[in-house]
Design a protein around this nucleic acid. Structure first.
Lengths: 83, 83
DNA sequence: GTGAAATATAGGATATATCCTATGTTTTGT
DNA sequence: ACAAAACATAGGATATATCCTATATTTCAC
Protein backbone atom coordinates (compact mmCIF):
# COMPACT_ATOMS: atom_id res chain seq x y z
CA UNK A 1 0.00 0.00 0.00
CA UNK A 2 1.16 3.53 -0.78
CA UNK A 3 2.09 6.20 1.70
CA UNK A 4 -1.51 7.41 2.31
CA UNK A 5 -0.05 10.87 2.87
CA UNK A 6 -0.27 13.50 0.17
CA UNK A 7 2.72 14.13 -2.02
CA UNK A 8 4.31 17.60 -2.29
CA UNK A 9 3.34 18.34 -5.88
CA UNK A 10 0.12 18.70 -7.86
CA UNK A 11 -1.00 17.20 -11.15
CA UNK A 12 -3.63 17.51 -13.83
CA UNK A 13 -4.09 13.84 -14.55
CA UNK A 14 -7.73 13.63 -13.49
CA UNK A 15 -8.54 16.89 -15.27
CA UNK A 16 -7.04 15.80 -18.58
CA UNK A 17 -8.41 12.31 -18.29
CA UNK A 18 -12.04 13.31 -17.67
CA UNK A 19 -11.77 16.18 -20.13
CA UNK A 20 -10.97 13.63 -22.82
CA UNK A 21 -13.44 11.05 -21.59
CA UNK A 22 -10.96 8.31 -20.84
CA UNK A 23 -11.35 5.92 -17.91
CA UNK A 24 -8.63 4.97 -15.47
CA UNK A 25 -8.59 1.53 -16.98
CA UNK A 26 -7.90 2.97 -20.44
CA UNK A 27 -5.17 5.30 -19.24
CA UNK A 28 -3.62 2.56 -17.12
CA UNK A 29 -3.52 0.19 -20.09
CA UNK A 30 -2.02 2.88 -22.30
CA UNK A 31 0.84 3.64 -19.93
CA UNK A 32 1.29 0.11 -18.65
CA UNK A 33 0.33 0.34 -14.99
CA UNK A 34 -2.46 -0.91 -12.76
CA UNK A 35 -5.65 1.20 -12.71
CA UNK A 36 -5.28 1.61 -8.94
CA UNK A 37 -1.95 3.30 -9.60
CA UNK A 38 -3.71 6.00 -11.64
CA UNK A 39 -6.20 6.50 -8.82
CA UNK A 40 -3.45 6.98 -6.27
CA UNK A 41 -1.68 9.47 -8.49
CA UNK A 42 -4.87 11.47 -8.97
CA UNK A 43 -5.47 11.55 -5.20
CA UNK A 44 -1.84 12.66 -4.76
CA UNK A 45 -0.87 9.65 -2.70
CA UNK A 46 1.91 8.51 -4.99
CA UNK A 47 5.35 9.90 -5.59
CA UNK A 48 5.41 8.40 -9.06
CA UNK A 49 8.56 7.76 -11.04
CA UNK A 50 9.81 10.07 -13.77
CA UNK A 51 9.46 7.29 -16.29
CA UNK A 52 5.75 6.92 -15.55
CA UNK A 53 5.35 10.69 -15.52
CA UNK A 54 6.83 10.80 -19.04
CA UNK A 55 4.51 8.07 -20.24
CA UNK A 56 1.41 9.85 -18.93
CA UNK A 57 2.52 13.18 -20.36
CA UNK A 58 3.23 11.46 -23.66
CA UNK A 59 -0.21 9.88 -23.71
CA UNK A 60 -1.87 13.28 -23.29
CA UNK A 61 0.60 15.01 -25.57
CA UNK A 62 1.68 17.57 -23.00
CA UNK A 63 4.97 18.46 -21.34
CA UNK A 64 5.94 17.36 -17.86
CA UNK A 65 5.59 20.92 -16.62
CA UNK A 66 2.08 21.17 -18.03
CA UNK A 67 1.07 18.04 -16.16
CA UNK A 68 2.91 18.39 -12.84
CA UNK A 69 3.56 21.44 -10.69
CA UNK A 70 4.82 22.26 -7.22
CA UNK A 71 2.07 24.87 -6.91
CA UNK A 72 -1.62 24.13 -7.23
CA UNK A 73 -3.22 24.30 -10.66
CA UNK A 74 -6.16 26.69 -10.84
CA UNK A 75 -9.43 24.76 -11.15
CA UNK A 76 -11.30 25.12 -14.40
CA UNK A 77 -14.09 27.09 -12.75
CA UNK A 78 -11.55 29.73 -11.81
CA UNK A 79 -10.17 29.86 -15.34
CA UNK A 80 -13.65 30.57 -16.62
CA UNK A 81 -14.13 33.41 -14.17
CA UNK A 82 -10.88 35.10 -15.04
CA UNK A 83 -11.02 34.88 -18.81
CA UNK B 1 21.32 -1.83 -5.61
CA UNK B 2 19.70 -0.08 -8.55
CA UNK B 3 18.66 -1.66 -11.78
CA UNK B 4 22.08 -1.38 -13.51
CA UNK B 5 20.21 -0.97 -16.78
CA UNK B 6 19.82 2.43 -18.36
CA UNK B 7 16.61 4.31 -17.90
CA UNK B 8 14.54 5.47 -20.90
CA UNK B 9 15.06 9.21 -20.48
CA UNK B 10 17.98 11.61 -20.46
CA UNK B 11 19.01 14.35 -18.06
CA UNK B 12 21.29 17.32 -17.69
CA UNK B 13 22.17 16.86 -14.06
CA UNK B 14 25.89 16.29 -14.58
CA UNK B 15 26.08 19.12 -17.10
CA UNK B 16 24.44 21.67 -14.82
CA UNK B 17 26.31 20.45 -11.78
CA UNK B 18 29.79 20.67 -13.29
CA UNK B 19 28.92 23.87 -15.12
CA UNK B 20 28.23 25.45 -11.75
CA UNK B 21 31.14 23.79 -9.98
CA UNK B 22 29.12 21.87 -7.43
CA UNK B 23 30.12 18.41 -6.22
CA UNK B 24 27.79 15.45 -5.90
CA UNK B 25 28.08 15.74 -2.16
CA UNK B 26 26.87 19.35 -2.26
CA UNK B 27 23.97 18.62 -4.59
CA UNK B 28 23.02 15.54 -2.58
CA UNK B 29 22.96 17.53 0.65
CA UNK B 30 20.91 20.27 -0.97
CA UNK B 31 18.21 17.92 -2.21
CA UNK B 32 18.34 15.51 0.71
CA UNK B 33 19.62 12.29 -0.85
CA UNK B 34 22.76 10.18 -0.70
CA UNK B 35 25.64 11.24 -2.99
CA UNK B 36 25.55 7.81 -4.60
CA UNK B 37 22.00 8.51 -5.66
CA UNK B 38 23.16 11.53 -7.65
CA UNK B 39 25.80 9.39 -9.31
CA UNK B 40 23.28 6.79 -10.37
CA UNK B 41 20.98 9.44 -11.77
CA UNK B 42 23.81 10.98 -13.79
CA UNK B 43 24.73 7.56 -15.20
CA UNK B 44 21.04 7.02 -16.05
CA UNK B 45 20.70 3.98 -13.83
CA UNK B 46 17.90 5.38 -11.71
CA UNK B 47 14.27 5.94 -12.48
CA UNK B 48 14.08 8.69 -9.90
CA UNK B 49 10.86 9.89 -8.34
CA UNK B 50 9.05 13.03 -9.45
CA UNK B 51 9.54 14.55 -6.03
CA UNK B 52 13.30 14.23 -6.28
CA UNK B 53 13.19 15.49 -9.87
CA UNK B 54 11.39 18.60 -8.64
CA UNK B 55 13.94 19.16 -5.89
CA UNK B 56 16.88 18.91 -8.30
CA UNK B 57 15.19 21.20 -10.83
CA UNK B 58 14.42 23.64 -8.02
CA UNK B 59 18.03 23.61 -6.88
CA UNK B 60 19.25 24.56 -10.35
CA UNK B 61 16.35 26.93 -10.95
CA UNK B 62 15.19 25.20 -14.12
CA UNK B 63 11.97 23.49 -15.19
CA UNK B 64 11.49 19.74 -15.28
CA UNK B 65 11.48 19.80 -19.05
CA UNK B 66 14.77 21.67 -19.14
CA UNK B 67 16.37 19.03 -16.94
CA UNK B 68 14.82 15.79 -18.24
CA UNK B 69 13.96 14.68 -21.74
CA UNK B 70 12.96 11.53 -23.57
CA UNK B 71 15.33 12.45 -26.38
CA UNK B 72 19.04 13.02 -25.92
CA UNK B 73 20.27 16.50 -25.10
CA UNK B 74 22.84 17.82 -27.53
CA UNK B 75 26.28 17.88 -25.91
CA UNK B 76 27.85 21.28 -25.33
CA UNK B 77 30.52 20.70 -27.94
CA UNK B 78 27.77 20.33 -30.53
CA UNK B 79 26.07 23.50 -29.38
CA UNK B 80 29.35 25.36 -29.88
CA UNK B 81 29.69 24.03 -33.42
CA UNK B 82 26.19 25.03 -34.45
CA UNK B 83 26.05 28.53 -32.96
C1' DG C 1 -34.97 4.53 -9.47
C1' DT C 2 -32.25 0.43 -11.11
C1' DG C 3 -28.34 -1.60 -13.03
C1' DA C 4 -23.81 -1.14 -14.85
C1' DA C 5 -19.60 1.19 -14.96
C1' DA C 6 -16.35 3.88 -12.62
C1' DT C 7 -14.18 5.09 -8.48
C1' DA C 8 -12.56 4.57 -3.46
C1' DT C 9 -10.55 2.04 0.18
C1' DA C 10 -7.97 -1.63 2.18
C1' DG C 11 -4.47 -5.45 2.89
C1' DG C 12 -0.89 -8.25 1.47
C1' DA C 13 2.86 -9.31 -2.07
C1' DT C 14 6.75 -7.92 -5.04
C1' DA C 15 10.06 -4.88 -7.42
C1' DT C 16 12.96 -1.27 -7.15
C1' DA C 17 14.45 3.50 -5.49
C1' DT C 18 17.31 4.96 -2.11
C1' DC C 19 20.48 4.33 1.91
C1' DC C 20 24.87 3.04 3.67
C1' DT C 21 29.54 1.18 3.96
C1' DA C 22 33.66 -0.07 1.76
C1' DT C 23 37.15 -0.18 -1.75
C1' DG C 24 39.18 1.03 -6.11
C1' DT C 25 39.96 4.33 -9.85
C1' DT C 26 40.24 8.87 -11.90
C1' DT C 27 40.96 13.88 -11.69
C1' DT C 28 42.93 17.89 -10.14
C1' DG C 29 45.83 21.21 -7.61
C1' DT C 30 50.32 22.07 -6.41
C1' DA D 1 54.86 13.01 -8.94
C1' DC D 2 51.99 13.22 -4.76
C1' DA D 3 48.14 14.06 -2.07
C1' DA D 4 43.49 15.03 -1.77
C1' DA D 5 39.16 15.23 -3.61
C1' DA D 6 35.85 13.50 -6.65
C1' DC D 7 33.95 9.71 -8.86
C1' DA D 8 32.83 4.55 -9.92
C1' DT D 9 31.52 0.05 -8.57
C1' DA D 10 29.69 -3.38 -5.60
C1' DG D 11 26.80 -5.73 -1.91
C1' DG D 12 23.53 -5.78 1.54
C1' DA D 13 19.62 -3.26 4.08
C1' DT D 14 15.32 -0.54 4.15
C1' DA D 15 11.45 2.23 2.45
C1' DT D 16 8.10 2.74 -0.74
C1' DA D 17 6.16 2.54 -5.64
C1' DT D 18 3.50 -0.56 -7.94
C1' DC D 19 0.82 -4.94 -8.40
C1' DC D 20 -3.16 -7.60 -7.38
C1' DT D 21 -7.50 -9.10 -5.30
C1' DA D 22 -11.63 -8.00 -3.03
C1' DT D 23 -15.39 -5.12 -1.41
C1' DA D 24 -17.89 -0.82 -0.72
C1' DT D 25 -19.37 3.50 -2.55
C1' DT D 26 -20.38 6.79 -6.09
C1' DT D 27 -21.78 8.16 -10.81
C1' DC D 28 -24.27 7.79 -14.93
C1' DA D 29 -27.23 6.03 -18.69
C1' DC D 30 -31.65 4.43 -19.42
Amino acid sequence: MPSTRKVDFHNRVRLLRTERGVSRQQLADAVGVHPQTIGYIERRQYNLSLSLAFRIAGYFGVTLDALFSKTAFAPLSNDALTS
